[in-house]
Amino acid sequence: MPKSLDGLCQDTVFDNFYKKHARSLNNFMFYRTGDEQRSLDLVQEAFIKIWDKCSEISLDKAKSYLFKTANNLFLNEVRHQKVVLEYNQNNPFKESTFEDPEFKLREKEFEEKLQSAITALPEGQREVFLLNRIDGKKYREIGEMLEISVKAVEKRMMKAISKLRVEFEHFR
């Protein structure tokens, strides 16, 4: 028989749920966004959405619902940013710049050198690497969080480590 759906709506239950999962969710969102403030905002918004729907979510499914909600919020933000970027590219009143392409390339290389090798990893690889190495999550747990197979987690980790080795050589 399923657990009562109104359990999460109790203040003490929700407070314990928050305390148990806030840090892990924040780390997960930080790995997705690479931005501390943005990750905190997404975590807060995800918990608000959970609270608003607390009577519809069973306590045993609440964690996966929470992570999925936060991830969807992030994906919606990314989609919005793409629309804004496309609009700005097509905006005829865009400010023109007289920088030559070589200058832009040097500027980009400088920014990349400031980033750590981990930040340079593709999103999926960065998430898996940080969830495993920083949060100490097992591959099975990571797979459940990201809704991918353990083999996919292993492949991402292998690629992340390979890329980090190459990036590390580049920064010497």
Rank of each mutant, 00 (worst) to 15 (best):
S24Q: 13
L25A: 03
L25W: 04
N26M: 06
N26D: 14
F28P: 05
M29R: 01
M29C: 02
M29S: 03
F30A: 09
Y31N: 02
Y31S: 04
T33Y: 02
T33W: 00
D35E: 10
E36A: 15
Q37I: 15
L40R: 14
D41I: 04
V43M: 10
Q44D: 15
I48R: 10
I48P: 06
I48G: 07
K49C: 08
K49L: 14
W51T: 08
D52K: 09
D52W: 03
K53E: 15
C54P: 04
E56N: 13
E56M: 11
I57K: 05
S58Q: 15
D60S: 08
A62L: 02
Y65C: 02
L66N: 03
F67M: 02
A70D: 00
A70L: 01
N71R: 13
N72Y: 04
L73G: 02
L73Y: 05
F74S: 09
E77S: 10
V78A: 12
H80Q: 15
Q81M: 08
V84C: 03
L85K: 15
L85P: 05
L85C: 08
E86Q: 11
Y87S: 11
Q89W: 07
N90C: 05
P92H: 03
F93W: 14
F93Y: 13
F93V: 02
E95W: 04
S96A: 12
T97C: 11
D100A: 14
P101Y: 03
P101I: 06
P101H: 04
F103H: 13
F103L: 12
K104H: 11
K104C: 08
E109A: 08
F110M: 12
T119W: 04
L121G: 04
L121T: 00
L121A: 01
L121K: 02
E123Y: 01
E123C: 07
Q125V: 00
F129S: 01
F129T: 01
L130V: 04
L131D: 07
N132D: 11
I134R: 09
K137W: 10
K138L: 09
Y139I: 05
R140I: 09
E141T: 04
I142T: 02
E144A: 12
E144V: 09
M145G: 06
L146Y: 01
